Measured scan of single mutants.
Amino acid sequence: IRCIGVSNRDFVEGMSGGTWVDVVLEHGGCVTVMAQDKPTVDIELVTTTVSNMAEVRSYCYEASISDMASDSRCPTQGEAYLDKQSDTQYVCKRTLVDRGWGNGCGLFGKGSLVTCAKFTCSKKMTGKSIQPENLEYRIMLSVHGSQHSGMIVNDTGYETDENRAKVEVTPNSPRAEATLGGFGSLGLDCEPRTGLDFSDLYYLTMNNKHWLVHKEWFHDIPLPWHAGADTGTPHWNNKEALVEFKDAHAKRQTVVVLGSQEGAVHTALAGALEAEMDGAKGKLFSGHLKCRLKMDKLRLKGVSYSLCTAAFTFTKVPAETLHGTVTVEVQYAGTDGPCKIPVQMAVDMQTLTPVGRLITANPVITESTENSKMMLELDPPFGDSYIVIGVGDKKITHHWHRSGSTIGKAFEATVRGAKRMAVLGDTAWDFGSVGGVFNSLGKGIHQIFGAAFKSLFGGMSWFSQILIGTLLVWLGLNTKNGSISLTCLALGGVMIFLSTAVSA
Rank of each mutant, 00 (worst) to 15 (best):
residue 458 G to F: 12
residue 404 G to V: 06
residue 348 D to H: 07
residue 3 C to E: 08
residue 96 L to D: 07
residue 100 G to F: 07
residue 116 C to A: 04
residue 245 F to Y: 12
residue 501 A to T: 15
residue 281 K to W: 00
residue 160 T to Y: 02
residue 222 P to N: 10
residue 348 D to W: 10
residue 493 G to Q: 09
residue 485 S to D: 03
residue 356 G to V: 02
residue 225 W to V: 03
residue 102 G to C: 06
residue 226 H to W: 02
residue 234 P to M: 05
residue 419 K to R: 15
residue 198 F to I: 11
residue 221 I to W: 07
residue 366 T to N: 02
residue 12 V to I: 11
residue 403 S to E: 03
residue 317 V to R: 00
residue 253 Q to M: 15
residue 144 H to C: 10
residue 159 E to L: 15
residue 430 D to V: 03
residue 248 A to Q: 07
residue 479 T to V: 07
residue 450 G to Q: 11
residue 426 D to T: 14
residue 109 G to M: 10
residue 429 W to T: 01
residue 326 V to Y: 04
residue 61 Y to M: 12
residue 9 R to K: 11
residue 254 T to D: 03
residue 457 F to V: 09
residue 43 I to S: 01
residue 452 A to T: 12
residue 405 S to K: 06
residue 145 G to D: 07
residue 2 R to Y: 10
residue 33 V to E: 07
residue 410 A to L: 02
residue 471 L to N: 12
residue 154 N to V: 02
residue 82 L to P: 01
residue 320 E to F: 02
residue 456 L to G: 02
residue 290 K to N: 05
residue 374 M to K: 03
residue 235 H to K: 03
residue 141 L to H: 04
residue 117 A to P: 06
residue 296 D to I: 04
residue 461 S to I: 12
residue 25 L to K: 08
residue 123 K to C: 04
residue 463 F to R: 01
residue 437 V to P: 00
residue 375 M to T: 01
residue 166 K to A: 15
residue 320 E to T: 13
residue 173 S to P: 11
residue 238 N to W: 07
residue 359 I to V: 14
residue 377 E to N: 05
residue 432 G to C: 06
residue 232 G to M: 09
residue 115 T to R: 09
residue 467 L to N: 03
residue 288 H to C: 06
residue 174 P to N: 08
residue 162 E to K: 10
residue 73 R to D: 09
residue 332 Y to L: 01
residue 81 Y to E: 10
residue 312 F to D: 08
residue 70 S to W: 11
residue 379 D to M: 07
residue 372 S to C: 15
residue 320 E to I: 03
residue 282 G to R: 06
residue 407 I to C: 06
residue 93 K to A: 12
residue 248 A to V: 15
residue 266 H to G: 13
residue 370 E to K: 12
residue 437 V to Q: 05
residue 341 I to F: 09
residue 147 Q to C: 11
residue 166 K to Q: 14
residue 136 E to V: 09
residue 99 R to Y: 11
residue 31 V to R: 00
residue 53 M to Y: 05
residue 416 R to F: 07
residue 203 Y to S: 07
residue 150 G to T: 13
residue 415 V to W: 13
residue 6 V to M: 08
residue 111 G to A: 02
residue 22 D to S: 02
residue 352 L to A: 07
residue 185 S to I: 14
residue 271 G to N: 12
residue 461 S to G: 12
residue 2 R to N: 10
residue 60 C to G: 04
residue 502 V to I: 11
residue 42 D to I: 05
residue 296 D to G: 11
residue 398 H to Y: 15
residue 77 Q to G: 11
residue 203 Y to P: 02
residue 105 C to H: 05
residue 488 C to Q: 10
residue 328 V to D: 03
residue 328 V to Y: 09
residue 320 E to N: 06
residue 62 E to C: 13
residue 147 Q to L: 14
residue 166 K to G: 13
residue 103 N to S: 14
residue 414 T to G: 01
residue 280 A to S: 14
residue 165 A to P: 14
residue 270 A to Q: 14
residue 68 M to D: 03
residue 298 L to D: 03
residue 44 E to W: 09
residue 339 C to G: 08
residue 103 N to Y: 07
residue 354 P to L: 00
residue 405 S to N: 08
residue 272 A to K: 11
residue 93 K to V: 03
residue 40 T to R: 03
residue 101 W to D: 06
residue 407 I to N: 06
residue 149 S to C: 10
residue 317 V to Q: 08
residue 35 A to W: 10
residue 447 Q to E: 04
residue 229 A to F: 01
residue 108 F to K: 05
residue 279 G to R: 09
residue 13 E to Q: 07
residue 383 G to D: 07
residue 130 I to G: 04
residue 282 G to F: 08
residue 200 D to M: 11
residue 420 R to L: 05
residue 294 K to D: 06
residue 393 D to E: 15
residue 18 G to W: 00
residue 441 L to E: 07
residue 327 T to L: 02
residue 72 S to M: 07
residue 452 A to W: 11
residue 259 G to C: 05
residue 330 V to W: 09
residue 138 R to H: 15
residue 60 C to P: 02
residue 477 L to S: 08
residue 128 K to C: 14
residue 45 L to W: 09
residue 294 K to M: 09
residue 360 T to V: 03
residue 156 T to R: 14
residue 222 P to R: 02
residue 371 N to F: 13
residue 4 I to G: 07
residue 264 A to T: 11
residue 489 L to Y: 12
residue 125 M to G: 02
residue 331 Q to P: 03
residue 103 N to M: 09
residue 449 F to E: 13
residue 357 R to L: 02
